[in-house]
Nucleic acid binder design. Structure first.
Length: 338
DNA sequence: AAACGCCGCAACCGCCGAGGT
DNA sequence: AACCTCGGCGGTTGCGGCGTT
């Protein structure tokens, strides 16, 4: 049997609340307390459904609601919590006194999400989006001789670029930035050339298997090589799935990061914290060179040390880019969260 | 001044899980 | 076990305000 609607649509008002309705609802709840929302509208003399009353109370009329612009500390907390919890707005709201899940959700969608996108950060995964980043500065400074790159041309062909190349570049850049794997110059050049040329040619990754394997397991190396063949050997078939999927790239990055960071705690594989921890590290290990807070010196979620008293969007952009480098403190009570 | 488009936010919608009968 | 109510959640919508042309 289908579920009955929460209210009889006939005769019940919808839309914006009037001050009179707000007053009726507030007075009734002050006398009788919240709850029993189904019968509340009738008892309070409101032509609304209980659900509408509950939402109006919890999102707007509740006396402990903090209104006005979000502070930087609040924004910092939202971003950090979202990277851990995702779109669990109620859980995020529970950590922000006076803010409702609806308000946080709106603020995220209208402000933070757009800002992250502008910065080339995926607002869902909190990971850098290589296809939106300034690839010129990244790749040329990390891999190639700047003189051979004409990124205005390169970016012009971005839409035609093989996404596998982007993934591979992400992985390789990550390896490079770990400074753990000697990166063959020839392979760097070949990647750059492949990025620049629409006619994608298979990278001769097998030539560099040995040095790469210093940091990669044989399984991962084989997967990378197989993906290379699949991706570049069928570059004209855009719909063909490749084994070089996002999980693999994350695994690759995570593998390299963990192998080069003895401070990473060795948690049980099965624990929820492990998966959350790994996910967060994957997300934020892209640019290890600018990570300011080592794992051994945790930054509190509500730290005011990073608070800056500025209000422009650009300043918040800059501020956000730092926020995205946070790491979960060891003392963070994940169980309390979940 | 009018038209238009964009943006922010309050409110709604549909779904889900918990708990009661 | 099946059904129902209730409260809660996340996604989406639509309206009003505001800036631009």
């Amino acid at each position: 049997m289908g579920r009955a609607p929460c209210c009889d649509k006939n005769g019940l008002k919808k839309g914006p609340w009037t001050p009179e309705e707000d007053l009726k609802l507030t007075n009734f709840i002050q006398l009788h307390g919240p709850g029993n929302w189904r019968t509340l509208p009738k008892n309070a003399g409101l032509q609304r459904c209980g659900k509408s009353c509950r939402l109006r109370w919890t999102n707007y009329l509740r006396p402990d609601i903090k209104r006005g612009r979000f502070s930087f500390e609040e924004e910092e907390t939202i971003i950090q919590l979202h990277s851990i919890l995702g779109n669990k707005w109620s859980a995020i709201a529970a950590r922000l006194p006076g803010r409702t899940d609806n308000e946080i959700k709106n603020y995220w969608n209208t402000h933070i999400r757009k800002r992250l996108l502008r910065m080339g950060i995926d607002p869902v995964t909190h990971a850098p989006r290589l296809d939106f980043l300034d690839l010129q500065s990244i790749i040329s400074s990390s891999l190639c001789n700047q003189s051979i790159l004409n990124m205005s041309n390169f970016l012009g062909t971005q839409a035609l670029m093989n996404p596998e190349l982007l993934k591979l570049a992400t992985a390789i850049l990550s390896l490079k930035q770990q400074n753990q794997v000697p990166f063959p110059k020839d392979l760097q050049d070949q990647l750059c050339n492949s990025l620049l040329q629409d006619q994608v040619q298979p990278l001769q990754l097998n030539q560099y298997q040995a040095p790469l394997q210093e940091g990669l397991s044989s399984e991962m190396t084989n997967q990378l090589m197989q993906a290379n063949v699949e991706a570049f050997g069928n570059s004209h078939e855009n719909s063909k799935p490749s084994s070089l999927n996002d999980d693999f790239v994350c695994q690759l990055q995570n593998n390299m990061y963990c192998s080069s960071n003895p401070t990473v705690p060795d948690l049980p594989e099965s624990s929820n914290f492990q998966s959350l921890y790994n996910r967060t590290i994957q997300n934020f290990s892209f640019d290890r060179s600018v990570v300011s807070t080592p794992i051994s010196s945790p930054t509190p979620l509500n730290s005011s040390s990073t608070f800056i008293n500025s209000s422009t969007e650009d300043e918040r952009d800059s501020y956000c880019s730092n926020l995205l480098k946070f790491e979960i403190p060891e003392s963070f009570d994940m169980d309390g969260f979940m």
